[in-house]
Write a protein that binds this DNA or RNA. Structure first.
Lengths: 246, 246
DNA sequence: TCAAAAGTGTTGGAAGTACACCCATGT
DNA sequence: ACATGGGTGTACTTCCAACACTTTTGA
């Protein structure tokens, strides 16, 4: 358990948001940063950096997420630790990767520059290190988890129509869903409830607005979530943090 | 991405095996090692140690699994990276934890000593560090995964009766299963096939022996199984090498 | 012939899928 | 009035849980 010499420990984060593509259909995007030093100088890569001695892994992820998007995530979860010997050409590097979901309206406010840009998740260039594999794995986790949990809500505001919620699922799962059955499944699951308000302005029957039922668990992550979480007004964020008691 | 000073990186492994308790019923056990230095001197802890610069994380897990049980695992998977600032009293320590399944006959051959012992998973003493939480999480993953994958086979040899397979499920899930329905579900899943052999000697109708169908995937772990992480599911596939009848 | 476990058949309910149909609004 | 999406009803299928029943052995 002594300190390991010659070995770097970093945290990287895959940040997902929904944005509209050219045809106006929502799809999954993520921000990448251009590397400004070797190795892989000039290539696009996941935001990340070394873990500081005084911060937890999750806080390190939050920090470099804030440094990239200047916003807090609606959802944050550890993805995997990548540690193959040859994954970085110069130095032995172990990266603990987190994945995050942010709301579209927040994502739009991200300050973009020469070295930070959004990419469609299914049309990435060749990235630095093993980051293509990492993104593929994160996408797989996002899609898998979408089918048995409630993380879709991390992509939405506090009130939303069933059509908006359905579009999130369709964008992530990349397949159309039956509106009638989708409605019934969501309502019978007890995860959402009607607010009574409706949205006027569309040239059709005004849809009702729904909200999430706060006391329903987002994800069953087992003992790691058992530690009490402040149920924040952001109605999300309940399911990701691993509180390790001393 | 520079090397992080003052921060230790270790690998620990939760090793599960099925053993019979006092009443002869199989249940989940794991080997622990007694700490022979501070912090937590004298307490029981998960086997583990520092990651060497020239070995991958998974190889580090295999190595300290071999050093503890002197055997190779039938199944090995990364569990989680634990990295809270205060999880070790003296030094900042990040532990990447793996979990493993070993067969009962192999587990019995493990050389036990003063400082290595098997414990029933549901009756652990107070362990060093945050290891109680880690074991709880590993148990949760084992039980969750048992319900949607084929990892049960990692607890068995190459041929087994349906009753033996069912007992594995019952021991892990801690609930009785209907033998009739269990049989149909297993057979219709295509995961196992009859060998034609039967076991005589019991004082009842001789049960047939089954084997795993090798080309059926054990677990869908997404992109990590396909390319970069060959050994996640490979071991079992090799153990029950597929003879697919024409 | 009896006990015990292997293995088969049958039924009822829950949940998912497909799709016909009505409702309420803007134009 | 009619197009458009919101919302309801309903039949069909598939899967799962419960449990009665038959089969084959050892004692």
């Amino acid at each position: 358990m002594t300190s390991t010499a010659g070995l770097g420990l970093a945290v990287s984060t895959v940040i997902f948001a929904l944005r509209n593509d050219e045809r106006g259909a929502p799809s999954v995007w993520l921000p990448l940063v251009r590397r400004i030093r070797d190795p892989h100088l000039g290539r696009w890569a996941l935001p990340g950096g070394a873990v500081r001695v005084e911060e937890s892994l999750e806080n390190a992820a939050r920090r470099n997420l804030a440094e990239t998007t200047s916003l807090g995530p609606a959802y944050l979860e550890q993805l995997y630790a990548f540690g193959d010997v040859d994954r970085s050409p110069d130095q032995r590097l172990v990266s603990i990767v987190y994945w995050a979901l942010v709301r579209p309206d927040e994502a739009e406010q991200v300050t973009l520059g020469e070295n930070v840009r959004w990419f469609a998740a299914d049309a990435l260039p060749e990235l630095a290190f093993d980051h293509n594999l990492i993104v593929d794995y994160a996408l797989w986790r996002l899609r898998t988890k979408m089918e048995y949990s409630r993380i879709a809500h991390a992509f939405l505001g506090s009130r939303f129509t069933l059509a908006e919620l359905r579009e999130v699922y369709e964008a992530v799962l990349q397949k159309p869903l039956d509106p009638a059955n989708f409605r019934r499944q969501m309502l019978s699951s007890g995860a959402i409830e009607p607010t009574g308000e409706v949205v006027t302005g569309g040239r059709h029957r005004p849809p009702e607005l729904y909200r999430y039922v706060g006391d329903v668990q987002l994800v069953d992550a087992g003992p790691l979530t058992a530690a009490a979480q402040p149920s924040v007004a952001t109605d999300l964020g309940a399911a990701s943090t691993a509180k390790v008691p001393a």
